[in-house]
């Protein structure tokens, strides 16, 4: 018997045991996790719902997942039924992608202590061990793009089209306005919350109203802004987008978009689940963790100095030299 070989064998065995132990948890190695997503609008809305679908697809490219998506669930009670159904069917992670679903989730999660739930955008886990929350610091990208917008505007007036003054829409708009003011103190920012997440026609007309008072740079958030982008396009006004990359809507006027990379936090949530942690944590995407990315449109001829303003702001926010809305 060769002592060296025995030692080698022993070492390999020990290493294997250690490996198994380190990954030993609720979800045995090799098991494919089942993930369900419930979202309010269509999977390809170029906005909120598309961002989470792209996020989970990015994860799927790296690890095997069994994913089910129920999109277009704007009826809150239907979403609640879907959440309960997925949990009852044994899905490991149920993601309620809409802040309006939180009230229902809070009640349902109690009944399924072994299921991991995540919901957003929010920073409230209800103190439950199996619920995590996730949010987007969309005010950061808003701030960056607000600064660029102010620098870009020749008329000194900027228009913002919002849905209802809540959640990440409010954060983005507030950040954008703050950024514009920081760049140019006397800039005029007209904010119009149209009161709907779905009325494309009203969003378009709101954009027209902005153009009529002389705004030459526009931005907006939520899925109904596709109408506003169209109007901006006909009048050659510059557009800043958020949530997803909206360049395809109007390549000639989209300057830049703040894109949500939910995969950053989805990866963390899944890693925590691998460790047996089902929830109780708050996650957020930000410029610093690359969950928020400002994607510039190469086709738009953005003056170099304006782009520099944006890049500098990104760096400053990442390094914590600028804190937005605090």
């Amino acid at each position: 018997m060769n002592p060296v070989r025995t030692l080698k064998k022993a070492l390999i065995a020990a290493a294997t045991v250690a490996l198994c132990l380190s990954s030993g948890n609720l979800f045995a190695a090799g098991k494919v996790l089942k993930v369900a997503i419930i979202a309010p609008s269509a999977s390809n809305d170029l906005a909120f719902t598309q961002s989470i679908v792209e996020g989970i697809n990015a994860i799927k490219a790296e690890r095997e997942l069994d994913v089910a998506i129920t999109d277009g669930t704007f009826v809150v009670e239907d979403a609640a039924a879907a959440i309960r159904d997925y949990a009852a069917k044994g899905y490991d992670l149920v993601i309620a992608h809409g802040s309006q679903y939180g009230g229902s989730l809070k009640e349902i999660a109690k009944d399924f202590p072994k299921t991991a739930f995540a919901w957003g955008t929010s920073a409230d886990t209800f103190g439950m061990p199996n619920v995590s929350s996730y949010e987007a610091h969309s005010e950061e990208g808003g701030y960056v793009m607000g600064m660029m917008a102010a620098a870009l505007s020749k008329s000194g007036s900027i228009g913002v089209v919002g849905p209802i003054e809540v959640g990440d829409a409010k954060l983005y708009v507030d950040g954008f306005v703050a950024g514009a003011k920081a760049q140019k103190a006397d800039i005029k920012t007209n904010v119009n919350y149209i009161g709907s997440f779905s009325d494309v026609a009203l969003a378009a007309e709101a954009a027209r109203a902005h153009l009529a008072v002389g705004s030459d740079v526009l931005t907006g958030t939520a899925q109904m802004v596709v109408g506003a982008v169209g109007v901006a396009k006909t009048k050659k006004a510059a557009w800043f987008g958020t949530q997803a990359n909206q360049t395809v809507l109007a390549p000639e006027i989209v300057v830049a978009c703040q894109v949500y990379k939910w995969e950053v936090i989805l990866k963390q949530i899944l890693a925590d689940m691998d460790q047996g942690v089902l929830g109780g944590k708050k996650y957020a995407i930000s410029l610093a963790n690359n969950g928020l990315v400002i994607e510039f449109n190469d086709k738009y001829e953005l003056p170099a100095d304006v782009k520099t303003i944006g890049m500098d702001a990104i760096t400053a926010i990442k390094e914590g030299k600028i804190t937005v809305l605090k």
């Binding site: 779905s198 494309v200 006909t234």
Partner: peptide, 17 residues
């Protein structure tokens, strides 16, 4: 007219118009 003026289509574009 609505779709072409807006240059877009979406679920329930008319919003009960």
């Amino acid at each position: 007219a609505l779709a072409i003026e807006l240059g877009i289509f979406q679920h329930n574009l008319t919003n009960s118009m």
